Amino acid sequence: MSSRLVPLRGLGRATVLSAIAAGAFAATSGVAQGPALAMLDRLEPGLWEVRARDESDTVQLCVDNGRKLIQVRHRGEACRRFVIDDAPNMVTVQYTCPAGGYGHTRVRFENPRLAQLETQGIDNGLPFNFVAEARRLGPCPR
Rank of each mutant, 00 (worst) to 15 (best):
S18E: 05
F130P: 00
D54K: 07
H74N: 15
A24I: 13
V31D: 06
V91Y: 01
Q60N: 04
R135V: 14
A78Y: 01
V63Y: 03
H104C: 00
A134T: 02
L126F: 11
P7Q: 10
G34N: 09
P88H: 08
Y95N: 02
S29Y: 09
R113D: 13
F82E: 15
L8R: 13
P139Y: 01
T119A: 11
D54R: 03
R108T: 15
A99H: 04
G66Q: 06
R9N: 13
F130L: 13
V16Q: 05
G12T: 15
V6G: 00
N111E: 10
R67T: 14
V72Q: 07
R75F: 11
V72S: 09
A24R: 00
A52W: 05
C140Q: 06
A27E: 10
D54S: 05
L11V: 09
A78C: 00
F82L: 12
S56H: 05
R106Y: 00
V59I: 11
N89K: 13
M1G: 15
L137D: 08
I70N: 06
Y95E: 06
H104F: 14
A27C: 06
L17T: 07
M90Q: 14
R136E: 08
F25M: 09
F128Y: 15
A99K: 11
Q116N: 10
M1S: 14
G12C: 01
R136L: 12
L61E: 02
L5P: 00
P35D: 14
N89H: 10
I70K: 04
L69A: 08
A99L: 08
G34R: 12
A132T: 07
G34L: 04
P127K: 05
L17S: 08
M1T: 11
S56T: 12
M90T: 10
V72L: 11
E110G: 11
V16S: 02
I84N: 08
P112T: 08
V16H: 01
P112Q: 09
R136S: 03
L11A: 15
V31C: 00
M90N: 01
Y102I: 00
D64M: 07
G66F: 06
A132E: 05
Q71K: 12
P139G: 14
D54A: 03
D86W: 07
K68I: 01
G10H: 12
Q33H: 06
V93S: 04
P98F: 08
V16F: 05
L40H: 04
N89Q: 15
L126V: 12
R67F: 05
G76T: 04
A87Y: 06
A115R: 01
A27P: 00
G34C: 02
V6T: 12
C62I: 04
G12V: 03
L117N: 03
Q33L: 09
N89S: 13
P127Q: 06
A22V: 13
P98N: 10
I20W: 05
R51A: 15
E110C: 02
L17V: 11
Q60S: 12
C97E: 05
S2N: 14
T58A: 15
V63G: 01
E77Q: 15
R113Q: 14
N124R: 13
L61Y: 01
E118F: 09
A99Y: 01
M90S: 12
G10W: 08
C79Y: 04
Y102E: 09
C79V: 05
P7L: 09
T92V: 14
V91A: 10
Y95I: 03
V59W: 02
R135K: 15
G76R: 06
P45Y: 02
T96M: 08
L43T: 04
V16N: 01
A99T: 11
L43V: 04
R108C: 00
Q94I: 00
